[in-house]
Amino acid sequence: MKWKKHDRRSMVGVFREMFLAGISILCVSTVIAGQPPDGAALVGNETCLSCHEEMGEAFEKTVHGVVFSAEGTKGALTCESCHGPGSAHAEESDPELIFNPAGQNQFGGRDLCVACHNTANFDNWAFSTHHTGDVNCSDCHRIHTETEMAVKKAIPELCYDCHSDIRAAFFMPSHHPVKEGKVECLDCHGIHGGGGRLTQDNSGRELCFSCHPEKEGPFVYEHAPVMEDCNICHTPHGSVANNLLSQNEPVLCLNCHAMHFHATIDGVEGAFTVPHNPSRNGVSTADGWKKGMLTKCTQCHSEIHGSDMPSQAISTSGNALTR
């Protein structure tokens, strides 16, 4: 390995060199743990570029190229920092004799990319569903060519490759504006295992409230499922029902609540009497039930996510969420 000689010989410089050496050793040791070409030695960038000139030119334009060219890292981070010792490959031109990070998996020891991408977003990469599902960094990212965030395809098409059912959901009448390009998958999903905005575990109500804070409360009058999980009533990717509801009203509400008010008249057709209140005697028709089923609960219970103001009817102690 070629080391850049610094003019300054201060202790900071020495520590910097030691640290860079550590990174290189770490990267190389990772490579060795993954697929060690026996007896291979470091050959340096010039040897690599003698055959892979086009790839080198393209790489320089990438964000990795900028980092590799920076003052503190130039010469320390090379092709072999990721690909391992290349002498055997250079001599034989055999792709099997060089480490290909695209082939690394969760059994390959420490993850190569996370060694440098060591921020909060990657804290839980080793435990993430993508990682345990053998999704490799290079399944989504293209390292040697200039693309936005080095991804192979633009998001969300990249995600749809595996999650086609989610693409279908976004074509439902009610959906988050992902296909319109106004919201993207990364706004909600910590795909590298990291947390979302101000969320505890990047899931559930905490995540939703990062964009819909008016529904978080805490309210004087609560609606219990709002405290529990937004997904009890909503399906976030797309729905046939309005407002991303998993079912239309009133059927959704009737999953937990009985119909009331409109159901106070018999369901049979014909004349009926109300002995204790004769003024309400009348003739019932099936139309009464239609009225009930065709009324949306939120037309009265309009503050369904919670309210600080008491409703008018005392039978609920103000908790009817109508105000």
């Binding site: 947390g195 101000l198 409360g217 009817a313």
Partner: peptide, 23 residues
């Protein structure tokens, strides 16, 4: 079953929330 009558009142007001987190 009313707990207020014959009056004009505000409704549908949004809360004013402040959230602080430490991690």
């Amino acid at each position: 079953r009313l707990n207020y009558d014959d009056t004009i009142l505000a409704y549908g007001a949004y809360p004013e929330t402040e959230k602080i987190s430490h991690k």
